[in-house]
Amino acid sequence: MKNQEPLQDIAYDAFVYAYPLMEQVKTVNGMFQFTGLIPNKPNMNPKLPWENIGMPIVAPNLTSMTGGVFVDISHGPVTLEIPEVKDRYIVYQCIDVFTHNFFYLGTRANNGEAGRFVFYNKHQQLPNNDATPVLMEGDHAIVVIRIDIANEDEYARVRAIQDAIQIVDAPQEHRSYPTYDEKKAFSPDFVEYVNELLTEVPDTETALFERFAAIGIMRDVSLTAEQTAEVQAGIDAAYAAIRQEAANLQVGNGYLGATTIFGTREYLDGNYMGRAAGANFGLWGNSKEEANYFMSFVEGEGDIVFTKENLPPLSEIGFYSITAHDENVHVKPNEFDSYVLTMDKMRFEEDGSLVVKFSSQPEEGNWLYTPGGKLIILVRVYQPDPDRIVDYVPPPFVKR
């Protein structure tokens, strides 16, 4: 008789697979509750980004207004209409139930052109509405929308863009979405989230799901107390490994980076631990072609000196920003209104280098406020050179 694979090993791999799906459920549940997000209706945040200063928000984006669409194609295709936007950066990041970035629209992806895009699955017939077809896996997706804004004078323009983003064709019926419960998510019952989210096994993962069936994924099983304990041991080991992997996203010079753990299913190519570490590091990170993030945990006052050769590598339409956060990655108010440096505000040296200063009192040049103590510096690089960004490491923070 063939030896059966230990349930602990199966549970380990299954939890690594399921963890980002469950983290997304948790986040979407929060959006349902606190932002009023509902299926197939655009949900736009009217707040200016700098109104997030002082709020308990992790790594708030201080240069973009945001919005989202929760797409539900369970009862038929859904058509999204977007306006032309050529005067500023805009991105529509489309994230499926697996947390893959399966599609993009916006400045980089379609040159900011207007259009209609119909989301559908392989079993559905496309409507005759001349929209560009966008194939999805699963019934649900989230479209995260970010629109750059420089100052309050641009508010009316950005709000007009938000208002022009519409769902123009969608079924009235929706499929239920799971309710997140942390105790359940970290117990052998976590399999229920996968079973609720998915209606079929992905074509490329048949063998994987045949293994997962032993613990109740896409199959009814009854586990003994001993088997349940074995599954729990696999879950505990998997979560510890995910946290360790997320903590080890070191790219050099004291920075954590995540340039290779977000993307399409094809790009990730079975890197389930990387996908899980990405969800633990920060859900909904962009694919490397769109945006990259470098985070450094430092202390005290100091400087970062970018030589011309070591500035973030950009595409022709790329740009970057630098933000200072407290040790909780929050942005606290300060009397100088010093929070973020964007490229249009940076002052470069004659040789093309860039010096960024972090201290408690204003300084000439590129200065960001820090009260001293622990500090987290975040370098955001948008629309980089996709080939060079993979190996890029920002220069280190040098303490004074």
Rank of each mutant, 00 (worst) to 15 (best):
V305A: 15
I377R: 03
G352V: 03
T66Y: 15
A164H: 06
P371D: 08
W284R: 15
Q383P: 06
M346V: 01
G285C: 00
N292W: 04
K122T: 12
I317R: 14
T99I: 03
V168F: 08
L314E: 02
F186N: 06
A225P: 04
D344G: 12
K288L: 08
D9A: 14
A213R: 10
G30M: 08
F34V: 10
N110T: 11
E154T: 09
Y267L: 11
V390E: 10
D391N: 12
L283W: 01
P171T: 08
N280C: 15
G300V: 07
L256Q: 12
S359I: 08
P333T: 12
L341Q: 01
D148N: 12
A114F: 05
A170Q: 05
I90Q: 02
N271H: 02
K41M: 13
S353N: 05
F397R: 03
S176H: 15
P188I: 02
P60W: 00
T66V: 10
I82L: 08
Q361M: 14
R347L: 13
T370C: 07
T307D: 09
E289K: 11
N101H: 08
Q24V: 03
N310V: 07
Y19H: 08
K2E: 14
K399L: 13
I73M: 06
G54F: 09
Y369A: 04
Y392C: 05
G318K: 01
D203G: 15
A185M: 03
L198A: 07
H140Q: 11
Q162C: 06
A156C: 10
R211H: 15
K332F: 09
G300C: 07
Q24E: 11
E230G: 03
V25A: 00
D9K: 15
F319L: 10
L7R: 01
P56H: 07
D220H: 12
V97I: 14
I377G: 01
K41R: 15
S360G: 13
P396S: 12
F306Y: 10
P60M: 02
H123P: 07
K399A: 15
P312W: 05
Y293M: 09
T264H: 04
A160K: 12
Y177H: 07
W50E: 14
E205R: 10
D220N: 14
E137I: 10
Y155L: 15
N61H: 10
D391G: 15
T228C: 09
Q124P: 01
G234W: 03
F117P: 01
K26T: 03
R108T: 13
W284P: 02
I389H: 00
A213W: 05
V251N: 00
F397M: 06
D163S: 12
E327W: 14
T264D: 04
F358H: 03
I242T: 01
A240V: 09
